[in-house]
Amino acid sequence: MDVFNFVVAEGAVIDADRYAARLREMGVQPSALQQLRIQLSRVHGTRRGVLEVRGGDVALALRPLAPAPSEITMLADAIRDERTDPGHLGPDLGWQQSVLARIPAHEALLVDDHFRTVSAVMYPLIEVLPGRVRVSTHPDTTPSIALESVLQILAGYGIDVEEAPDGFDTHALPSSEVWVLDPVYGARLVDTWLEYGTKRPARSLFDRGGVPSHREVNEVRKQLAALV
Rank of each mutant, 00 (worst) to 15 (best):
F4A: 06
E10W: 09
G11L: 00
I14P: 03
A16N: 01
A20E: 15
R24I: 14
G27H: 12
G27A: 13
P30K: 05
L33I: 10
L40D: 00
L40P: 00
V43C: 05
V43G: 04
H44N: 15
H44V: 14
T46P: 03
R48L: 12
G49F: 11
L51E: 02
E52V: 11
V58L: 08
V58A: 06
A59C: 11
L60I: 02
R63M: 12
P67G: 15
T73G: 07
D77Q: 01
A78E: 14
A78C: 14
I79A: 07
I79N: 09
R80P: 03
R83C: 06
P91L: 07
D92F: 04
V99W: 13
L100P: 08
R102C: 15
I103P: 00
H106T: 02
E107K: 09
A108T: 02
H114A: 15
H114T: 15
R116T: 11
V121T: 01
L125P: 00
I126E: 00
E127G: 10
E127M: 13
R134S: 12
I145H: 09
E148W: 12
V150P: 06
L154P: 01
A164F: 11
D166F: 09
A172S: 02
L173K: 03
S175N: 13
L181F: 08
P183D: 12
V184S: 06
Y185V: 07
R188G: 01
D191S: 14
D191I: 01
T192H: 15
W193C: 01
E195R: 02
L205K: 02
D207A: 06
R208F: 06
S213M: 08
V220G: 12
R221G: 07
Q223C: 10
L227S: 11
